[in-house]
Nucleic acid binder design. Structure first.
Length: 143
DNA sequence: GCCAACGTTGGC
DNA sequence: GCCAACGTTGGC
């Protein structure tokens, strides 16, 4: 049962939402995260949890919704047992991408990790933030 | 390309 | 266990 919401950040020149969509059937290991806070967030994820997919560096906008399809497991890109990752797959693109500027301009979202903890690559999203960003993205009701 | 923010490392 | 140095991220 999906309970929590998240935000996954990726540079589109490295890995974009369209690439996530292309691999939808297989799912994609969200590997390479080397930050404890981000890892702890992934450990807390459940299969079926949903998250925003945000393009950093270029685009600077939330472009889609992703779904967790495997619980945290060892990161195959390292032998270091500290690092784990989940698998995600694309659920759907959003009708209207939500830019960082739009998030910053919305008083309801001023506490969002995307604004306050700019460098964290895997972030929790509160139910209220989820609902509000979905509304801005043209997804109403929120998935 | 620059720089601020911030997490990590390592000397003590 | 503190803290300075260093590296990385990511917005601009």
């Amino acid at each position: 049962m999906a309970k929590n919401h998240w935000l996954f950040k990726s540079e589109p020149s490295v890995f974009s939402f369209s690439q996530l969509q292309e691999r939808r059937a297989k799912g994609t290991e969200w590997d390479g995260v080397r930050n404890y806070a981000a890892r702890n967030n992934m450990r807390a994820m459940q299969v079926g949890d949903l998250g925003f997919f945000y393009h950093s560096n270029e685009g600077l906008e939330i472009v889609g919704i992703a779904e967790v399809c495997a619980l945290a497991h060892p990161d195959s890109t390292t032998d270091d047992p500290r690092w784990e990752c989940v698998d995600i797959r694309a659920l759907k693109p959003v009708p209207k991408p939500v830019s960082l500027d739009a998030v910053k301009a919305n008083p309801k979202l001023k506490e969002m990790a995307l604004v306050r903890l700019g460098r964290l690559s895997v972030q929790p999203v509160t139910p209220a933030e989820w609902k509000e960003v979905c509304r801005m993205a043209g997804l109403d009701p929120a998935p």
